[in-house]
């Protein structure tokens, strides 16, 4: 369960967002509407001007990035020098008890059958690895900044991703510019000039 009520001043508008849901959550909006800023606030990259953020009832507003148990994935979220095999278990390196129990399920269901250096992969395959690594580390929340849009088998991938996330009690918030991507979501929010509105 992720809940927040935040306010963040930007150059051209003020982001005021509220959300209280769990599951597979879609946040759609046009370019520059504040979607990425919203994810960066939840991840702890940006400090919010006022408000609060709770995950599973715990207030994480003042926690640094590395203590939030929130994994942010975007175009640059990959470790260039690692191979795919090394990358998939990368997130476990920083846990006291690294549990790779879902590694094989993730590999099979998300169709990861290749192994080369991550920076040699295509954008789509790199996005897959970035998203799969996030799942395997079993965080509380995964934030996906438009990465699903890069995938060639988007529909199948998103359905399987949602299933694995749900069975491991991981909430996922993903942003997109395309409203049709909300078809796979449990809840749908729209951001427009910094204001969030719940659709589903």
């Amino acid at each position: 369960m992720i809940e927040f009520s935040i306010k963040k001043k930007l150059d051209n508008f003020v982001l005021e967002a509220e959300l209280a849901d769990s599951g597979f959550i879609c946040v759609s909006g046009k370019n520059g509407s504040g979607k990425t800023t919203l994810l960066n606030c939840i991840a702890g990259i940006y400090k919010i001007d006022s408000g609060w953020i709770k995950i599973n009832g715990k207030d994480i507003t003042s926690l640094p990035i590395y203590k939030r148990k929130v994994v942010l994935t975007n175009y640059t979220s990959y470790i260039p020098h690692l191979t795919v095999d090394e990358h998939l278990v990368f997130g476990l390196k920083f846990k006291k008890k690294g549990d790779s129990s879902i590694l094989h399920i993730v590999r099979e269901k998300l169709g990861i059958k290749f192994n080369s250096r991550v920076n040699k992969l295509s954008l789509g395959n790199r996005s897959k690895i970035s998203l799969a690594t996030a799942l395997i580390s079993l965080p509380n929340v995964i934030l996906v900044d438009e990465l699903f849009s890069n995938l060639d088998n988007k529909e199948e991938f998103m359905i399987n991703y949602k299933e694995i996330a749900r069975s491991n009690k991981i909430d996922v918030i993903y942003t997109t510019q395309h409203n049709e991507d909300a078809l796979y979501a449990d809840h749908h929010y729209v951001v427009n000039e910094g204001q969030t509105k719940k659709i589903i």
């Binding site: 991840a43 990259i45 640094p64 990035i65 590395y66 203590k67 939030r68 148990k69 929130v70 994994v71 942010l72 994935t73 975007n74 175009y75 640059t76 979220s77 990959y78 470790i79 260039p80 020098h81 990368f90 997130g91 390196k93 920083f94 846990k95 970035s130 580390s137 965080p139």
Partner: peptide, 26 residues
Amino acid sequence: ERGPEIYAMSFGASEFSAFFNVVLPN
């Protein structure tokens, strides 16, 4: 690019750990 460091930190790596595991090898 800061993306890889932030990605590592969101897994629980401290800034020190992200430097040695992500930044230094690159």
